[in-house]
Amino acid sequence: MIIIGEKISVIAKRVREAMNNRDKGPIQELAEAQWKAGAHYIDVNIGPAEEKGEELMQWMVETIQEKVQAPLCLDTTNASALEAGLKAHNNEWGRPIINSTSNDPERFVMLELAAKYKCEIIALTVGKGGLPADAEERCAIAAEIMARAGEYGVPLEDIYLDPLILQVCTTQDQALHALKAVRMFRELNDPPMKTVVGLSNISNGVPKEMRSLIDRTYLTLLMYEGLTAAIMNPLDRELMNVMKTTDVFLGNTLYAHSYLEM
C-alpha cells in the first residue's frame, strides 16, 4: 500500500509555528521521521495559505526535499501556492500529488495544474453542495470528475479517487458507505481506478487513546476493498504493523518471519 505521511499539517501547532517562523528544523525532522518509517510520499498541508502562499509552499517543498528523497503530496486550496510548490518540486524521486480537486468548479483549476505539470491528483468525491449520502452518490460524483479530467487532459491512471472518510463517532453509517465506495470506484475503469483516503478522519472526535485502534481496524477493511493509498500517520507503529500484516494476507507482500521489520 502507498503511504502518504500526514504529519506535516498546519493543524499541528508545532508545524504551524515552524511554518510561520520559517524554521526548517521541526519540518525536516517530521519529514525524515515519516520517510524512515516507510512513507512513500510526504503530505504538505499548508491550509488555505492566503498570505504569501506561493512563497510558503516553495519554502516547504525545498525544505523537505533537502532532507528527504521522496515525492510530496501538496495540500492546499490555494492554487497559485500549489503551482509554486509544483515548480519547486524535485521530480527525481517521483512525481508529486496534488491534494486535491473535487466536483466543485472552484477546484477544477487543480485539474488544470495536474495536466500542466503532469502530476498525480487526489479527487475528493464531493460537489459544491453537501456531503455525499452514500456510495452510489460518491460514484456519480467520481464519474463526473473523471469526465472532467478527460476534458482537462489528465489521464485516469493519474487520479486517486477519495471517498471522503467521515468521523465514526457522529456519522457511523458513513464508515460502511465509504468502504463500499472504494470497492465501486475500482470498477469505474479497467485498469481499476486508484483510491486514497484521509484515514484519521475516521477517528476524529473519539477519545485520544482509541484513535489508533479505530484507524488501524478501519484500514484493514479499506485494504480488503482494494485501497491503493492512505494519508496516514506512519509513526504509529501499531498502524504500520497492521498494514504490513494485512498486506501479507492480501498477497501484496511475501511472508517472512521478519516481515514487520521490513
Binding site: 511475501l254 511472508y255 517472512a256 518471519h257 521478519s258 521489520e261 521490513m262
Partner: peptide, 12 residues
C-alpha cells in the same frame, strides 16, 4: 519464505 527470511537476517 525462508529464502526471504535468510536474506533479511543476512542484511540485518
Amino acid at each position: 519464505n525462508l529464502a526471504k527470511q535468510l536474506n533479511i537476517l543476512i542484511t540485518q
